[in-house]
């Protein structure tokens, strides 16, 4: 992992070299490497930034909100509306989790846009991070569904009203689609973030390589940066709304 001599192409580092982790503090627990890396740093930074922002901005409890308080309230109401629309009133207990998830991914994605070279790290471009989050959602949602509906949960895999002789075909498809949820959920976020950052690195390399003519890829890079910020927000939204939809399925079984 960290500190690897990265492969270079023609003197320029590979565009995926940016995804290497750097150790900040080496931690080793029983042979397991739990080093505090750049990825870990930005995860903690996201958690602390979001937490501090939401708590501090609401400190005044102003009746007429200040700018920061207004931002906190807007993000709250945005996710509250999403949960209300997609899950309904039964989704209330899960609201803190979904709100945390959205803010965590959003801030993590946006941290990736900071122009600090190796010191910037987009933890959502790590498949293991997105997969862990998607699996947590998947397993959590399945546990909720099993606890709420018991064995009745398995009727989820056979759409009501379908003819019985379709069962051998429908049930495997439904099970497969259910099991692929964490994969699609995690790969969507991971691939978007990785592809965007790789593209930016590639165009950045072009700018340096072409010298004066680097103005052309430079313009593309400017546009890409704007686009990446859009993707960062959009993917956080997509991850969150899919979580809401899965949660709705678990609570209401279709």
């Amino acid at each position: 992992m960290a500190g690897n001599a990265s492969p270079t192409e023609g003197g320029f580092p590979s565009p995926v070299e940016q995804f290497h982790l750097l150790d900040i503090v080496k931690v080793n627990v029983g042979g397991l490497d739990l080093s505090f890396t750049t990825s870990a740093f930005y995860m903690m930074a996201s958690a602390i930034l979001v937490g501090t922002f939401l708590v501090q901005s609401m400190k005044g409890r102003h009746l007429v909100p200040t700018r920061l308080q207004s931002m906190a309230e807007l993000s709250y109401e945005f996710i509250a509306g999403m949960v209300r629309d997609n899950v309904g009133s039964e989704g209330r207990p899960y609201f803190p989790f979904i709100f945390s998830l959205f803010m965590f991914i959003l801030v993590g994605n946006l941290f990736g846009m900071l122009p600090f070279g190796h010191y910037t790290y987009t933890f959502t471009s790590q498949i293991i991070v997105t997969f862990a989050m998607a699996s947590a959602v998947f397993i959590g949602v399945t546990v909720i569904a099993l606890m709420k509906h018991g064995l009745h949960f398995f009727t989820f895999f056979f759409p009501a009203g379908a003819p019985l002789y379709m069962a051998p075909l429908l049930i495997p498809i439904e099970i497969l689609s259910y099991l692929s949820r964490p994969v699609s959920l995690s790969v969507r976020l991971f691939a978007n973030m990785m592809a965007g950052h790789t593209m930016m690195k590639v165009f950045g390399t072009f700018v340096v390589m072409l010298g004066v003519f680097g103005v052309a890829p430079m313009l593309v890079l400017v546009a890409l940066t704007g686009f990446e910020i859009l993707v960062a927000v959009l993917q956080a939204y997509v991850f969150t709304i899919l979580t809401c939809i899965y949660l709705n399925d678990a609570l209401h079984l279709h």
Binding site: A2, L34, S35, A40, A47, V50, Q126
Partner: peptide, 29 residues
Amino acid sequence: SAFPTQIFWLIISFALLYWIMSKMAVPRI
């Protein structure tokens, strides 16, 4: 080899955020 550290720190940071969120931020807002 980079997986355990990331999962470990993900759980730590997300648990921290979730705790702040559910105990302080959400009730206050």
